[in-house]
């Protein structure tokens, strides 16, 4: 069984962000990047399925600039077998386009299972897996906290509002990883050394025959307003007065 995992390159969220001159882009040049945490969980799940003897091959794919080879090497160091980088300027992409690129890649790679992070921690769109399932006509189980493979079916425990639900999907299928699916391993030093020798293929969007036509246009970013300093009130009466007259919360 072949598993495809997606690896998104995201800025370190502890970094201080700034916008470019006309506020149409977040200036990510100087930022430290890493693998989207939910994608690490997805890669870890694939590795565990391989360790259980369920899967034979794990392919990790990233769509992004040449710098993203670093994040793919992380996936390889964790235990993925090979990696594919689809070169693209991340700023020209939107979820639909990413899903379309992945759909073409799936055609080429023919995986039995796709495991993806439930969302990218940078923009939190939570759209690509669902769009991809629609384009491929595959069943999907989002927000997984457990997976089990048996008889060409994947059973997925899902976290939903107010509880859990269980889906059993015929393969091929798409599963998205939630926080509690597993705790991703830290790449070991031997793993990091081995990763350097694992195959990492590079291709372009044109190679896959996808037209670069994003449907989402970013108009402008705004920094959140600076938080104003709090005030200390003398007593409950003053608090009530402020809530009523100044904040107009009551």
């Amino acid at each position: 069984m072949k598993i495809l995992t997606t690896v998104r390159r995201v800025p370190d969220l502890d970094a201080r962000f700034s916008l470019n001159g006309d506020k149409t882009e977040i200036d990510t040049e100087a930022l430290d990047h890493k693998v989207n945490y939910f994608d690490e969980v997805a890669v870890e799940e694939a590795i565990r399925l391989k360790e259980k003897g369920v899967a034979d091959e794990i392919v990790s794919v990233c769509i992004g600039s040449g710098n993203a080879t670093k994040e793919l090497r992380t996936a390889l160091a964790m235990g993925a077998d090979r990696a594919i980088l689809v070169e693209a300027d991340e700023k020209t992409l939107d979820p639909y386009l990413v899903a379309a690129i992945l759909a073409k890649l799936v055609e080429k790679e023919q995986p039995d299972l796709i495991i993806m992070g439930k969302l990218g921690v940078d923009f939190e769109n939570t759209q690509v897996p669902q769009l991809l399932a629609g384009m491929l006509g595959w069943p999907q189980a989002t927000f997984a906290y457990s997976t089990e493979i048996c008889d060409s079916k994947v059973t997925v425990g899902r976290e939903v509002d107010g509880g859990t639900s269980t889906f059993r999907l015929p393969l091929p299928a798409i599963v998205t990883a939630d926080l509690r699916l597993n705790e991703p391993r830290f790449p070991s030093l031997p793993g990091i050394m081995k990763a350097k020798r694992k195959p990492l293929d590079t291709m372009t969007i044109e190679d896959l025959g996808v037209a670069l036509e994003p449907r989402v246009k970013t108009v402008r970013f705004e920094m959140p307003p600076e938080r104003e300093a709090g005030v200390i009130v003398a007593d409950v009466a003053e608090l009530i007065q402020k809530l009523r007259d100044e904040v107009k919360a009551i």
């Binding site: 201080r16 090497r73 030093l189 990091i192 350097k196």
Partner: peptide, 28 residues
């Protein structure tokens, strides 16, 4: 404002796998 690593400015002296080792050990 910035991390000590950035202030030292030594990341440009390190290879990607060396940075990966650092990140992995730091997390551990």
């Amino acid at each position: 404002q910035v991390s000590i690593d950035e202030l030292i400015g030594w990341d440009s002296l390190l290879t990607d796998d060396e940075k990966e080792v650092r990140r992995s050990v730091r997390r551990f």
